[in-house]
Computed example of a mutant assay.
Amino acid sequence: MARTTYQELLDAGVHFGHLTRKWDPKMAKYIFMERNGIHIIDLNKTLAKLEEAASAIKQIVKSGRKVLFVATKKQAKDIVADQAKAVNMPFVTERWLGGMLTNFATVRKSIKKMSNIDKMTKDGTYDVLSKKEKLMIQRERVKLETLLGGIADLNRLPAALFIIDVKKEHIAVSEALKLNIPTFAMVDTNSDPTNIDFPIPSNDDATKSITLITNVIKQAIIEGLEERKRDKEEEAEKEAAAAKAKADSGEEEATEAAAPKRERKVEATEAKDGE
């Protein structure tokens, strides 16, 4: 079953690219035609690439790993944050900090600092501070939450990145490339798709287009999570059945081992009676 249709892509304006003078020649194979000075994306190729990307993301999530959503452009950040939260995935929607992946250990220290501030407010340490100190801590907490709130639960490097606008998020693409982290991205006609593992040729400026593509990725993640849950349940049932079979087998062995002892006891009783 297809996750979306050609008509849905058309209705969302996924086919509208950039002005022809702003194009990247490496996107030529995904361009259908030029109309009124604007490149039109081939939606048949978009559909195929989107299905390929969704299937790959589903397998990543099924294996129990995380996909980091990245979108800092104004028209995409709220959409992406909502979709990522819906499937409990990490996201970056404010500003990509240089070294967020390549210097992940330092980023984790900042996240730990944020959790330490939260502990201070709970254990009473915060209450004994001066008004000025409280204000400074509050400001720092807000800043950390804005920049790192979306990745607060990310304890290790993500297994993949899903990016809106690879031209704007070129630092994220570069870091993922260095660390061999697979990238999935909406790639418009003004961008270079060659550094992206799973490029999805699409309009990365219109909110309808971003919503549709991101929703398809979200649905693929949901499918992966559900399959992982089913697999775990089946595995648990198999383990329980195996444990039960082992227990039953142990009881049978104990019964068989006890049988000769009962026979010998009976024989001994009969012999005593005979005397």
Rank of each mutant, 00 (worst) to 15 (best):
D197M: 10
I40F: 01
I111E: 03
P193R: 06
T194I: 07
T189C: 05
A268F: 12
S202P: 08
P193N: 08
L177F: 11
R156Q: 14
T194F: 05
A242L: 13
M100F: 08
L225Y: 01
K232E: 14
L157M: 05
N215C: 05
L43T: 04
P90T: 01
V173M: 07
D192T: 07
L9R: 01
D204Q: 09
I200E: 00
E8A: 10
K113L: 10
V70G: 02
E239M: 15
I217T: 04
A240N: 12
R228T: 03
T269I: 14
T194M: 10
L212H: 10
L147H: 12
A81W: 01
T4V: 02
K132G: 09
N36A: 12
K85Q: 09
L154K: 09
E226V: 11
A84R: 03
K77F: 01
V266T: 13
A257R: 15
N190S: 14
Q83Y: 05
I171Y: 06
T194V: 02
R95T: 06
D192A: 11
A84W: 00
V128P: 03
T207I: 10
T20F: 09
M1D: 07
L157T: 07
L135I: 10
S130H: 08
M136R: 15
H170K: 13
L47D: 01
V266Y: 12
A220S: 12
I40N: 03
K45N: 09
G124P: 06
